[in-house]
Structures are given as C-alpha cells and as structure tokens.
C-alpha cells in the first residue's frame, strides 16, 4: 500500500484546505478513500439511513494534485481506505494558512509509531529561507472486509428536486431559526418554490423563496404528469445538521440541489467542477 500526492498550485492547496474544513465541520470522524482518479471523504457516523453514509465528498484527483502515486491493497482492489479525525487534519492544514500559505503540499501515507498521513509543506516565509513543516496525522487503515460500508449510496426516489436559493442568504435565515426550534421543515415543489419553516409554542415562522429552477431529470416529465406540480413536498430534519450543510457555501458551489423524499429524507448536493458533496439528512421522525 502506497500513497503519495503533491500539490504545487496555491489555489488548489487553498481549495483543498477549504474542502477539508467544510467536511470536518459536518463530521468529526471521516474515512478517506483513495482511488486511482478520485479522493473521497466519507462519513458514516450517526444519522445515515440503513448503513449508508451520511456524507459523501468526491474530489477529482487530477485537479488538485500535480503528482499522484498510489498502490492499493491488491491490484484488483486498487484502493486505500483510511479513517481519521478530520478536525485534526483540518486544524493542521489551517496552521498552514496562518503561515502565509504553503507553496507546495505533499501528502503521503507513512508508517510512524502508527500509520500516519504525513503532510509536508513548503511555506513561503518572509525571509529568503524556505521553511519546511512536517505534520504526522495518525490514521487507521480500514480492512478490505469493511469497505462496503462506505460504498456510494444509491440515488433516492425523491418527489421533488430543486436548485436551492443562494446558500449565504438561506444560511442567515436558518441560523436565526436555529434559536427557535431543534427541527426545521424543508419543502419544495415542481414550480420552483422552496420553503423553510419552524414552529414552537410561541411562534410559527416560514420563509418562502420562489422562482427557483428545478433540475431536469429523465423521468421528471413522467412524474410531473401524474402529480400536482404545485404540491409542496416536505421533510422535517435536524436544524443543526441542515445549518451545517449550508456552511458548505464556503466551497463556492456552482449549484446546490435539494432532493426531497417526502416525510423521509433530504438528499442534498453541492456541486463544483472538481468537487461534489452529497449529504443525507433523514427526517427527524425516522431517526
């Protein structure tokens, strides 16, 4: 098993740090899956439905890394799965940001007292001297027999799919609602209405976004013909987790999609050219 990757472009390093920070906020423990063409961050802790992951992030290796060598467990299973405390990786990477940014960042799998992801950064220091920093972040290798737990989840049978409003705006609204209730109801229909609402014994409050686009799926016409396009489909989910997902706005996604499986699940996507993040939020009553 070997892995060694090197990033030499500053925007890519920053973006990579950004992705790790975002994912780390959503899940403390995380599995990194290293494959030939992609790098995945997968989280499975509490809240996923039927053993499928709650969080699935895919990074296109070629975009981030200038050098990338890996050798999996066996030639047939040419992948590596390892588990780590992502907040540790995140804090470590952030220290690179502090020091005026890294010029190059090398990530490799090493054997110290324990398996580690070793980060070697070449920092741009103020002086003429380059500064090299080495961080060893301990990881645990995941044996082949457990890989299936981290398989990509299947697409859910949703009633509505909608492009979410600007996340920054939505996030402000949801953050204010957070002080009022532990749960939020998220609803959408086929004509581009997106509603978030909370209620408690003192107040009912709902915010309506309208005129949003709905992504075209192959079977959408078939579905919409059989149902009322104006009907709102909703799921009530944990507001803190939903708010965490919205922090993903920091990835500057080109689009954010919300699929609603009525009463059961929100399947959320943040899509960028090189990064895709999927987040599964089961309805609160189902947990």
């Amino acid at each position: 098993m070997r892995f060694r990757g090197k990033m030499t472009e500053s925007p890519c390093i920053k973006q990579f740090i950004n992705v790790v920070n975002t994912v780390a906020r959503m899940s403390k423990t995380c599995v990194i899956r290293i494959a030939k063409n992609n790098l995945f961050f997968i989280a499975n802790e509490g809240g996923g439905i039927a053993k499928s992951p709650m969080l699935w992030t895919q990074l296109e290796q070629g975009h981030f890394f200038n050098e990338f060598q890996m050798e999996g467990v066996t030639p047939e299973n040419n992948e590596i799965f390892l588990e780590l405390q992502l907040d540790k990786l995140s804090r470590t990477l952030n220290s690179l940001k502090l020091a005026q940014g890294a010029r190059t960042l090398k990530i490799k799998l090493t054997k110290r007292h324990t398996p580690c992801l070793t980060l070697e950064a070449e920092l741009t220091s103020g002086s003429i001297h380059d500064r090299f920093v080495v961080h060893d972040v301990p990881v645990q290798l995941i044996p082949r027999r457990q890989w299936h737990i981290y398989d990509e989840p299947a697409m859910s049978q949703f009633q509505t799919s909608i492009l979410m409003p600007p996340l920054r705006h939505l996030r402000t609204v949801v953050d204010h609602m957070k002080s009022l209730s532990a749960h939020i109801s998220v609803a959408a229909n086929e004509i581009g209405t997106f509603v978030v609402s909370v209620s408690n014994d003192k107040v009912d409050i709902a915010t309506y976004f309208r005129g949003l686009l709905t992504p075209k799926f192959v079977d959408s016409q078939e579905r919409s013909s059989t149902s009322n396009r104006e009907e709102l489909h909703s799921a009530t989910v944990d507001i803190k987790k939903f708010a965490l997902f919205l922090q993903g706005e920091q990835l500057n996604p080109t689009k954010a999609i919300c699929n609603v499986v009525s009463g059961r699940l929100l399947h959320l996507f943040l899509v960028n050219d090189d990064v895709t993040l999927q987040y599964y939020l089961p309805a609160s009553s189902y947990v």
Partner: peptide, 16 residues
C-alpha cells in the same frame, strides 16, 4: 494517545 495525536516538526536554518 500516540495513535491519535498529530506530530509536527518545523526546521529553521542557522541563517534565519
């Protein structure tokens, strides 16, 4: 816990 803690090292050259 050694298997969990991040270990860091940074070098400085004499000339710095």
């Amino acid at each position: 816990d050694q298997t969990k803690a991040v270990s860091t090292s940074v070098g400085m050259k004499r000339g710095e």
